[in-house]
Amino acid sequence: MLLMQVIHMFLHYLSSIERSKETTTGYEKDLTQFSKFLEKKYNCTPYLEEITATDLESFLLWLKEKRNYAPASRARNLYTLRSFFAYAYKKELVARNVALSVENIKLQQKERVYLSETEVQQLVGAIDHDLIQLVVLVLYLTGLRISECLSLTTDTVDLDQRVIHVVAGKGNKDRLIPISDKLLPLLQHYLEHERPDTDSDLFFCTKKTGKLSDVYVNRVLADAVKKLGWKKKVTAHILRHSFASQLVKKDVNLVQIQKLLGHSSLKVTSIYTHSNLEQLSEAVNCL
């Protein structure tokens, strides 16, 4: 069977089990690139059953040497290939899952960048845009992803019940985020005095466009960081890291943090249990 034919079947299957649009699009991009690589390598249309583990290894090497893909990006491609061949094997389209013979790509564990409470206050103070100041505080005090935050509507932010309803977050999962005592009056003031009169149902919006873009938020953040003279790169996602990291430092249960972040497993949440050098020094001096 033609490789592209099976790829289309796989993508249809992902849609049928309600995988998110972002996930499906990412898989499609990776698999289409793999198909084009094989077509160029063998100068013919690739067939699924003829693909070997060596072909997969050659593709990953090509991504490294010709496309300059970082280890994390190549690891993502390998994950895509394993999911695809697992599907093909399950549907009895191939005799074995050749992707299982390919070794994992070694990833260097990076220490996550996060901001202290003082740094968040400094960052907010360096932002001249009132609405983005509020969005930054929301990201830090809720742990929302930027896409989730900017997709909130006036219906999903329930100030009376003091809860934010995240509809179809990453992995197409809903979750509830309680609104803290610190955040509640800020959201109430915005809704009553600052939110523009517009037809848009988005909670965070401008009068001109009725919405706010993540690109613009990150650009304002970059300008604020530059104004502060910081060397670290701060994006909207770093505020999510900061939320999780500060909760870990305050000994909040990891399962509770997992639920707030909307992670599917504790393994993902556990990356936030990093310690700074000062904490590590305190630890060794306990002995």
Rank of each mutant, 00 (worst) to 15 (best):
L48C: 03
L2F: 11
T142I: 06
N97A: 05
K207S: 13
E148N: 04
L100F: 14
L38D: 01
K66E: 15
V217G: 07
V113L: 14
S275N: 11
L261V: 05
L266E: 02
Q279M: 13
Y190V: 08
I127E: 06
L93G: 06
Q279R: 11
Y69T: 02
A53G: 12
P46F: 01
A75L: 05
A86S: 15
H189L: 14
F243K: 00
K66A: 10
A88K: 03
P71D: 04
F34I: 01
K259E: 10
L150H: 03
V98K: 05
L254E: 03
N218A: 03
Y190M: 09
Q279W: 08
D158Y: 13
M1V: 07
K227Y: 09
H12C: 00
C44G: 08
N253F: 04
T235Y: 03
V268N: 11
S242V: 02
K170S: 04
V217T: 10
K232I: 09
L266I: 10
K226W: 08
V234F: 04
T209C: 07
L247P: 05
T80E: 03
L159W: 03
L187Q: 04
N43T: 12
H129Q: 12
K250C: 11
L115G: 04
A168L: 15
L38V: 02
E22H: 15
L144D: 01
E22K: 11
V234W: 02
N104E: 09
